[in-house]
Nucleic acid binder design. Structure first.
Lengths: 339, 339
DNA sequence: CTGTTAGCGCTTTCAT
DNA sequence: ATGAAAGCGCTAACAG
């Protein structure tokens, strides 16, 4: 099972190993005749270069690590896909790592590129242990989240503007008492979306009511729990903006359990346009993030960095839009309270 | 930014590079004293071995490829997680590849291990282009699907028994007219589940009615479409067994659009216990596959193979169970046709 | 244009 | 127990 090496091919082709290497990597630097001899030998033997040796020699790996905050979050599926497609097209490979909220894991992945097991790291978590900053950082791009401790090339969406866009849709439907279920407040994306909610209300001349803000953790059950707290508080509201679709689905379940209809009594707005949005009943109106595009842009940026290009530290913002489905409807008028 | 090599450490520690290598990889083969000298030098310099060189020399990569049928299928999330956790614990890395129904991509990934870019391949697609069989196959394990052309170590669930288990639950609730929305019939998992549906009916003394079998493609919309065809056909049924949760959600939407209540009028049974199961309204009764376990067992098997252990070609079956939730209920009696 | 040669950074005999 | 030396398979000066 001993595989053929470049030496064997050279022998068969009757040339030196250097010539074989050249014929394969810089065909234009050899004569037509030798190129053909080499190609013939390669064909006959089924020779394929040992990439490990090539990479070792070239000090490159042609692979990058995609480190996500939580691998079981379906959100990353499409992002990964965008990264993988772009990588594949440029001859790169993608290793996906799970941050899992664990500094050790994250440091481990950073070390992988320091140890020359990957060329770069695409970070999709805001968790960057300070120990990581002890040594110089490897080629990195940050996506979807922000790292405050250090300024790195970034791909993102303007969560604040995006949230505002969504909430304005509710406002335009006549809603004024709009509750908001946030994400974990230690995440910038969560506070940004909260700010966007406030922006939209301010713009509409509505005083944001702190009683209508409930913290969630991006999981379905927290959306349900927050909604129950909201209902129990007795606060009035005609719409809920959940900071992601999963919590929106939880909110719908909680509302329905208490006999409130969606969207007749309460409109629901989600965020992400994830698999949950279409699975929900009714399908969610939601702020759509271009996940795949974010993935491919991140990889493009990574490639540019690895190619030694000068890249901007200004965040690359992707556009979001609103997927209007059936979970939102005009606000019920005070007179006619349900049917 | 030139990194320190083993030579530098050797110099500082005042020993040969061979000794440094030994002290690091086989500490017991050097004296206490030298080990300390070396460790000190390593600490002072922050030396970390170049993994690429180590792997090259050892002809290993400590990485495996996980090739899935469709990367945007949320089902693989937990599977990946199981693989990754087990791999991480053993010092392996996981490259996830997307088969995307494309032979070229699949061959590419197989070549990656032939080219020594990965040690092995975990296949989660039944698509194995015959060209792949031209050369000897690299270390491989097949999971969740089956390859007929060649017998490989396999991790799987008994889809037939699993489906039967689920349908028996419906039978026990008094259902007799149970429709089945299948997966793509070219997939063995789909035909196996169909067989399980038939088994359960046979066991209950019910003649399986071909008019109640509709083909789907595992996507939500196909579940809805199949259900619409079923309703349009005028066939009577009190339950639907969908070959995965996603189609079950589609079925619920279609039923509800036509005024049928779930589970009052029609019970719905899903398969997978994926994110869709809990997102559904009502939450789905579904056959649960231990996805994470399947992932970790696959990786365990891979590691055993790479360690040169003799492994069985007998499929390793994981147990499934039934998650009973609110989408199933006793069959409506003929007398009292809804309220 | 082609061949010779010197490594890449490490592990592993083989002597000592 | 340690060191010298021989590579792993390939690329890239450098000569010719």
């Amino acid at each position: 099972m001993k595989r053929l090496t470049i030496r064997g091919v050279a022998e068969i082709a009757g040339v030196s190993i250097a010539t074989v290497s050249r014929a394969l990597t810089h065909p234009e630097r050899v004569t037509e005749a030798t190129r053909e001899k080499v190609e013939k030998a390669v064909r006959e033997t089924g020779f394929v270069p040992n990439s490990q040796a090539v990479n070792f020699r070239r000090r490159s790996t042609r692979s990058v690590i995609l480190l996500v905050r939580d691998i079981s979050n379906a959100f990353y599926l499409d992002v990964y896909r965008g990264v993988e497609e772009t990588a594949f097209a440029s001859g790169y490979h993608v290793l996906m790592g799970d941050g899992a909220g664990d500094d050790k894991r994250i440091l481990h992945y950073i070390d992988m590129v320091r140890n020359r097991l990957a060329d770069g790291l695409i970070l999709m978590t805001s968790r960057l242990p300070k120990q990581a900053l002890a040594a110089p950082l490897p080629p990195m791009v940050v996506s979807l989240e922000e790292i405050d401790s250090v300024r790195l090339p970034t791909v993102a969406v303007d969560n604040r503007a995006a949230a505002r866009l969504g909430v304005e849709h509710l406002v335009s439907l006549g809603h004024r008492r709009i509750a908001h279920i946030t994400g974990p407040m230690h995440l910038k994306m969560a506070t940004d979306r909260l700010a966007g909610w406030r922006d939209a209300l301010d713009a509409a001349g509505v005083e944001p009511d702190p009683a209508l803000v409930l913290e969630g953790d991006f999981h379905l059950s927290s959306g349900a729990a927050a909604t129950e707290r909201l209902l129990a508080s007795g606060a009035k509201f005609t719409a809920i903006f959940a900071s992601n679709d999963e919590m929106a689905v939880g909110a719908i379940a909680a509302l329905r359990a208490r006999g409130r209809r969606v969207p007749d009594d309460v409109s629901i707005l989600g965020f992400d346009d994830s698999v949950y949005a279409l699975a929900a009943d009714p399908p969610l109106t939601t702020v759509r993030q271009p996940r795949r595009e974010i993935g491919s842009r991140s990889m493009d940026l990574m490639i540019a960095i690895l190619d030694g290009e000068e890249v901007s530290r200004e965040p690359l913002l992707s556009d979001v839009d609103l997927a209007v489905r059936r979970s939102t409807a005009p606000a019920p008028t005070n007179k006619r309270r349900s049917r």
